[in-house]
Design a protein around this nucleic acid. Structure first.
Lengths: 184, 184
DNA sequence: AGGGTTTGTGCAACTAGTTGCACAACCGGT
DNA sequence: ACCGGTTGTGCAACTAGTTGCACAAACCCT
């Protein structure tokens, strides 16, 4: 039950239309909570029906569509409640690790190439995060908001760092392994 | 579409009944691909219907229930295919990071306690992984299977290490922040 | 022998996320 | 004025995972 709260957060940061939200879910918020535009529109409808957000009265009423939404007090309260409520970390699910485990029984053929591809993707993501860090968090700023957001970005950076290192290590191991096509 | 492949892997490692699989999904495989017993039984049914696995002819035919399954050649082939096929990493989703981001707009009240709880959970998990490493991967062993499985475990250890460090850092930051109940 | 717990299998309903498509409006070029 | 791309909103169907419950057999306790 996190998508509605992701949307509330985004709307509190800045009231937006569905498409604007979709764009922001392709970066920033989307880096740790992705969503498609279909999901977003559906959820906006629900949140409005529940009275947590409302459509901003458009300047030019309804002519060229494009509804923007803002958060109502009830929405802010719900978000605060959710943020403070204890939640268990949800069980891991990682396909790549599963495939490695499978490779231990059916052989490693083909897997190496995909590990290399993943390494490249994680490197790219890491570079992007670092760039954002440089741009948005220069040494000076220090409001609580900045510190919290920086903390979140740091998690992203450190996670991508972990993956690049682990994949590098894995590829090194693979280099020493015979490329089997069948299991033991 | 990974649960069936997780099951195939587990069954290749050792033919098992539904409950035995469930137990193994609570550890080892389950550390990076969790599943409930309901999911597992449903999937076993499907895999059998597709001819990828079959029920082992029980010694005492059907007296006290308990069906064990083994993987058929078609199942092994499917697993090998899946393991080798390129797959994109799926977009991140992390509730805790989302909550931190929300806290930047609605205040940090209550969040600190849950961060502490998560830190404790990750520490425990890390300790468990290290114990498994000590037990299952003593310095001597060196078959390709061992190396691959160790690699997977290493990922688990490093991920938990990351989380404990990040949470420690986050809590240190929180200590300096005023515990706000409302946003800016 | 009866009664509670554990073992083992499974169905049904629900929730969240994904995929595929529809369609109107507007924007620019020819 | 028409045509094709982009912007913007949304429905419908499907897939994967979760939650809640049912029920039979076995085990073990008094």
């Amino acid at each position: 039950m996190s998508l509605p709260h992701a949307i509330l957060t985004a709307l509190l940061e800045k009231p937006s239309s569905g498409l604007e939200l979709t764009r922001r879910f392709d970066k920033s918020i989307g880096y740790f909570w992705s969503a498609t535009h279909q999901q977003i529109y559906r959820e906006l409808g629900r949140l409005e029906a529940e009275g947590l957000i409302r459509a901003l009265p458009a300047e030019q009423p309804a002519r060229g569509q494009k509804k923007s939404y803002e958060v109502l007090p009830a929405g802010r309260a719900e978000l605060a409640r959710w943020t403070a409520a204890a939640q268990d970390p949800k069980p891991q699910r990682d396909v790549l690790l599963l495939r490695l485990r499978a490779a231990a029984v059916v052989g490693t053929a083909g897997l190496k190439a995909d590990l290399r591809r993943h390494l490249e993707l994680h490197r790219r993501q890491l570079a992007e995060y670092r760039q954002i860090e440089e741009r948005d968090f220069p040494p000076g700023r220090d409001t609580p908001q900045d510190r919290l957001r920086h903390l979140v970005l740091r998690a992203g950076i450190d996670l991508e760092t972990f993956w690049t290192q682990w994949l590098t290590h894995a590829l090194a191991e693979f280099a020493e392994l015979p490329e089997t096509t069948e299991g033991p």
